[in-house]
Amino acid sequence: MASPSAFPQDGKKRKNRVKEDTGSIVFKIVAYILLVFGLVLVVVPFFIIVSTSLQDRNVNVFAWWPEKSGWDAYELVFTSDRSNILVGFLNTMWIVVPSMLVSLFVSGLAAFAYAKLHFRAKNILYAITIATMSIPGTVLMMPSYLWYSILGWAQSPLPLIIPGCFGSAAAVFFFTQYFSGIPQSLVEAGQMDGMSFLRCYITVMIPLAVPAFVGQGILAFVGGYNDYMGPLLYLSRTDIKTLAFMLVELQSYYGAQKNSDAISCAGAVVALIPIIALYLAGHKFFVGGLTAGGVKE
């Protein structure tokens, strides 16, 4: 590096610089070795389920490259009557997506009020909303079962749909931050035109905050798509099986007769493809939504 030194006569400084350069090359080599090692650790398990899923049904020993590969397992997973993965996928969709959309709308509406309207109870309501985030949710799952069974919702998808429709505190927190960055004057202009508050939220705020909505939407979708405990509690005795729940059951259906490992791996591969594709497509929005909640500004 021949950058002109301020002290050309200072040979010691030069030497240091050379040393630093070799140091950074060594650092880079070590860094790449570690990163590639990490990458291998992340990728190999995926490779393993793919190759297991293509395994011949009479083989039960793992091979990195299955000798006789067949698509039997996939065929079965897609055509079976009892646990058709397409049915599981559709079930997941209608349970997760509408609730998620309503949730986004409601969370955004609350955030709109916090960021742009003034009303007396604002600070106290906001403090309560944020405080609800610190309650460990999993602990509440079992005690809630009784309430849903009193409502007559146990063993129906309602407990997975309705509570979500009221928005989530984490999303309110995120949207409030996001909306605070949108100029108040836009809202005021809307009100000058005689827009109602709801109309103003829909026609002014939402279009300006599309990335925020996409990000929170993907987050909520991933959570719902992967949810296992909810369907286990509320749908295990119904015919409505969500994808994540079905994956676990797949193997037990075919346990004895066929190569059940290939079948459950095929199911896992099919279930993973949409969510990984969604993540890769939307990771920019996704990542912003995740880190906003945790980094202390």
Binding site: F112, A113, A121, T129, T132, I135, S144, G167, A169, Y201
Partner: peptide, 22 residues
């Protein structure tokens, strides 16, 4: 009124599906 109603919607959900069950 609108501000209070909009802002308290998530809290209504919290009340119905967390406070009441607990």
């Amino acid at each position: 009124v609108y501000g209070t109603v909009f802002a308290s919607l998530p809290l209504v959900g919290f009340l119905l599906f967390s406070v009441v069950p607990v």
